Simulated scan of single mutants.
Amino acid sequence: MGKGKGELLKNFIPIVDFIAGIAGPFCEVVLHDVSNVESSIVAIKNNHISGRQVGGPLTDLGLKLLKEKAYKEKDYLLNYPAKTKDGKVLRSSTFFIKDDNGDIVGMLCVNIDLSGAYAAKRFLEDFIMGINGASKEQSTDTDNKELPEHLTISLEDLMHSLIEQTMAEIDVPPERMSPKEKMWVVHRLSEKGVFMLKGAVAEVAKCLKTSENTIYRYLNKKIDDV
């Protein structure tokens, strides 16, 4: 990354502390340098929420946004659901940091931990139900929804999470997948930006029980060619 872009990102480091200081300990604030997706976190506050550290990777959603160039049409994303590796439900927002040419330099992410709020909500619902002499199981609003973002601690966790999610969409063991199904998985992973990560081809080949050359061949073909 050029010096100008590096200086631009440095200007946002105090903002990480500023936002976290205002919002308090239930708000994690993260600054990503998108020039290095495998080790993108350059600053983080209240990292007890996700367990991530400086030097950690970009999220699955972050990769997808880069791949789709979503930052060209909007400046930020607000209030989308996310989840940590240990199951905390979050409300997240991302601000795209761009240079004078409109090219993305970094992402400033704010993740609000809703675990306590949901616990209070369940308590109040159960309390009110008890008063009314009724009872029913309660669940969070995100229990049955597909979340757009999962906060992983390491590059390996990120790759495994993306591969497992994608293979689950087909729900067929790799040894029983047809070549067309394997190619679909590869193209789907490419859409999610997985192959921007170092070692992704080898990991995908291992999970699909095929060779790295086959993965490269799938990437260079259209699904209809099989």
Rank of each mutant, 00 (worst) to 15 (best):
G4N: 14
L9W: 06
K10S: 14
K10G: 07
P14A: 04
P14L: 11
I19A: 11
I19L: 08
I19M: 10
I22R: 08
A23G: 06
G24L: 00
G24D: 00
F26Q: 03
V30D: 04
N36Q: 10
V37A: 06
S40G: 09
K45W: 03
N46C: 05
H48M: 10
H48L: 11
I49G: 01
S50P: 02
G51H: 03
G55N: 01
G56T: 06
P57H: 02
L61A: 11
L63W: 08
L65W: 00
L65F: 12
L65K: 08
E68Q: 05
E73D: 14
K74S: 14
L78E: 06
N79L: 09
N79H: 12
Y80G: 10
P81N: 08
K83E: 14
K85Y: 08
D86M: 09
D86V: 09
G87K: 03
G87A: 08
K88H: 06
S92Y: 05
S93A: 11
D99A: 07
D103F: 03
I104P: 04
V105G: 10
M107K: 02
L108K: 00
N111D: 02
D113G: 01
S115H: 03
A120L: 06
K121H: 04
R122C: 08
F123V: 13
L124K: 11
D126G: 15
D126E: 15
I131K: 14
N132V: 02
N132M: 15
S135R: 14
K136S: 11
S139F: 12
T140S: 04
D141E: 15
D141M: 12
L147I: 14
H150V: 14
L151N: 11
L151V: 14
S161W: 07
E164W: 07
Q165Y: 11
T166P: 01
M167W: 01
M167T: 07
A168T: 11
D171Y: 09
P173I: 07
P174I: 01
E175H: 03
E175T: 10
P179C: 00
E181G: 04
M183F: 00
M183D: 07
W184H: 08
V185D: 01
V186D: 12
H187R: 12
R188A: 13
L189Q: 06
S190Q: 10
S190W: 10
V194D: 02
F195Y: 06
M196L: 09
A200M: 05
V201M: 10
A202G: 01
A205W: 04
L208E: 05
E212M: 10
N213T: 13
R217E: 13
L219W: 08
K221G: 11
K222C: 05
D224H: 10
D225Q: 10
